[in-house]
Design a protein around this nucleic acid. Structure first.
Lengths: 200, 200
DNA sequence: TTACAAAACGAACGTTCGTGCTATTTTGGC
DNA sequence: GCCAAAATAGCACGAACGTTCGTTTTGTAA
């Protein structure tokens, strides 16, 4: 029933997630984090036992926040195409946080570093991709999308556009990024709808 | 004039680029690099004067290699659609290097760190995007693609698919990544071709 | 109120980081 | 083969890194 420890632990993770979004996972050093929270390095360290354990906990915290702030609200949209659109649009919003999308940054950081942190991150992204595919499946059931549409393929292409949006917005700072993103996604939707072919 | 210095300098950059592709730009420390090359830290350091200058030079080296190994060979493909396809396929190959695509990794690393390194990286990516758009324009001239196609929009969407391919291959290790990528790109091409498609 | 556990602290550890100096070696033009 | 210039080495620095340790403070249940 201890409360104080859990409280501190959560305060640490909350700040760590905020820092990691801006500075990257490796950018969160224990010393910096402790200073920011007015804790001693050792006191903070004791909560996790290792840097790696901290990183895993941060990823899980990020998942929690993402589900709460982005996934769940999107899932409240009406079944079918509206929900698919909501998932996409909410993600775009999520990507406008200071520092951008935590998961995109962390993926690039960990893509060649096997370990529990990488595993936790993969799990989170699969969850997201699955949720999109499920929503697309529902849209098929509702008759919004064509019968022979592959939900996983759609998820792949939609996620690709999200990545493009992220890069053009955050890195290239292209003023047309939003317009391009919208056009690209509308193209995906149009293709998913029609039993015939795409348009643009 | 002086050859020895330039020779060493290039050997440094070559190894640094190789390391950076695998470990990230920040992962290339001067000490590590010197050890790997059997040089002293200070001797190596003297070639660049600062870590930041080294990073900029590494990015320029990466550009050089990319242009030589990927861009130029692709540009030798026949004008029009074949060249557009070649650009895409060559990029996919480039992304299968150990460590993946240097530019994708570096973009994520620098997207919130203004400075000369970031500028050099942006320049390189714009060059690549422009080249795609130009090839698409030619494909329009050749009558391969429809007249009202927006080359920059195509470049955005194609690049998005490349990013998706990179993530699904390297990070998620999805065995279907290649198939998904091909399908997505074929969709883009199909859409770019048809001048007249049924509307909904 | 006392007793015990949980939480936080401060100092130090061995490394590694980028960078600054000052020698020493190597190189290339004469 | 000499000699300036260029290239490289050697050494030291202050700071930051993750981690360990023994100790002190704080919280909580009996």
């Amino acid at each position: 029933m201890s409360t104080k420890g859990d409280e501190t632990r959560h305060a640490i993770l909350s700040k760590a997630f905020e820092l990691a979004t801006v500075a990257g996972l490796e950018g969160v050093s224990i010393g910096r984090l402790a200073e920011e929270l007015d804790l001693s390095k050792s006191g903070l360290f004791a909560h996790f036992g290792s840097k790696e354990a901290l990183q895993v906990a941060v990823i899980e915290e990020a998942s929690r926040v993402f589900i709460q702030d982005t996934l769940l609200p999107a899932l409240r949209a009406a079944r079918g195409e509206p929900r698919v659109r909501a998932l996409f649009n909410r993600w775009l919003e999520w990507g406008t946080r200071p520092g951008g999308c935590f998961f995109v940054a962390a993926s690039a950081e960990l893509d060649d570093r096997p370990g529990p942190a990488r595993d936790a991150l993969i799990k989170a992204q699969h969850q997201w991709l699955d949720e999109i595919a499920i929503a697309v499946g529902i849209a098929k059931d509702e008759g919004h999308f064509r019968d022979d549409l592959d939900p996983q393929q759609f998820a792949f292409e939609a996620y690709s556009v999200m990545l493009g949006a992220h890069l053009f917005n955050r890195f290239l700072r292209d003023p047309q990024a939003s317009a391009r993103t919208r056009r690209a996604f509308d193209g995906l939707i149009a293709d998913a709808r029609a039993p015939h072919r795409k348009r643009n």
